[in-house]
Design a protein around this nucleic acid. Structure first.
Lengths: 181, 181
DNA sequence: CTGCGTGCAAACTGTTTGCACATGA
DNA sequence: TCATGTGCAAACAGTTTGCACGCAG
């Protein structure tokens, strides 16, 4: 159920004067084999590649993410972490939205035709060419709430101190992403 | 109708052990007197302050934006420009969403009770404590389209040949979005 | 064989932080 | 008074870019 074979990717790239390189092929493959509902930052992707023994430079990762987002192969996400995330964007991928815990970064996906329709209509109404439309809901997940967090600042927060706010505890703590239909 | 007088701001801050300073007061005032619908980046705000003769350091700007966002006084926006934007967030401010041109950054606000309701419901369904809910629609505005669409790729990216617009047809895959919701 | 793509390192942008001093409650 | 807030500069993280070489078309 891969949206692109290396042949179709090549065709897609060549059509626009770009080339199919091993790096681009590898990167697309990573996204294609990613558990449904995951999204990667440039750094994440670079780590994964490195762990797989691929030697692709970080610059190339960035350039490729850019290119693929531009081509519509990837979708660029603005979650609440200060850097962009990317996920596959294809007709085979359900268009969805995100519910994010700003404390632990747990992310729940959900879809809503209604929202998509509103987005489409709104873009049309203004004469915009629609690229993407994302409802992002920021909140505190039940687990984080239990660990204690009021809507305001964490206890002992100081402007001048190191603010341990929203600091993700571990890189692998976000592996438990749920996906709801 | 200002959501906060300096007295109520003071109360709000003191309640949490923070202090009212001239800087904080000034910054809030800038937001309060901002033309409706504008949102500022830290840099924007710093410029404005400087132009007004205020000598508030950039660090303080950042710290204040942070503080006020966490106190719920400001709303943090993730538009598509690589940096955050802030706007007033009060009961008196209509909650709204954004339609952004990824080429020229023109932003159109719109509100939708329906979206807000969907967001609320979705958060509730997952047991999340709702903080904010933003539908952000990315697209190309009519003017930018006329000028031809070349951004999204790094400066000097070599694809200068066929600059044809991408056709994003994945949005209208099956659902009938012709009907207005 | 041409010029796009890559890796590298250095540059850049937006943001955070350590420190000493200033100041609000 | 004294912990909080500020300004400054340096540190930082994420991203970009200039250059020389490598490789796809």
């Amino acid at each position: 159920m891969s949206p692109h074979t290396s042949a179709s990717l090549k065709a897609l790239l060549n059509k626009r004067g770009f080339r199919l390189t091993p790096q681009r092929q590898t990167i697309l493959y990573v996204f294609q084999t990613l558990p449904q509902g995951n999204h990667l930052s440039a750094e994440d992707l670079h780590q994964i590649l490195r762990r797989q023994g691929e030697r692709i430079s970080l610059s190339t990762v960035y350039r490729t993410l850019h290119l693929m987002a531009y081509m519509g192969i990837l979708r660029e996400l603005e979650l609440a972490e200060g850097h962009k995330h990317y996920e596959l964007n294809s007709p085979y991928t359900e268009h969805h939205h995100h519910l994010v815990c700003v404390q632990c970064n747990q992310t729940i996906e959900f879809k809503s035709d209604l929202i998509d329709r509103i987005g489409t209509r709104q873009a049309e109404a203004e004469g915009y060419h629609l690229l993407d439309c994302q409802l992002t809901i920021y909140g505190i997940c039940p687990e984080a709430m239990q660990r204690g967090w009021s809507r305001t600042l964490p206890e002992g927060w100081r402007c001048s101190q190191s603010q341990q706010r929203l600091q993700r505890s571990d890189r692998d703590s976000d592996s438990d992403m749920a996906s709801r239909g």
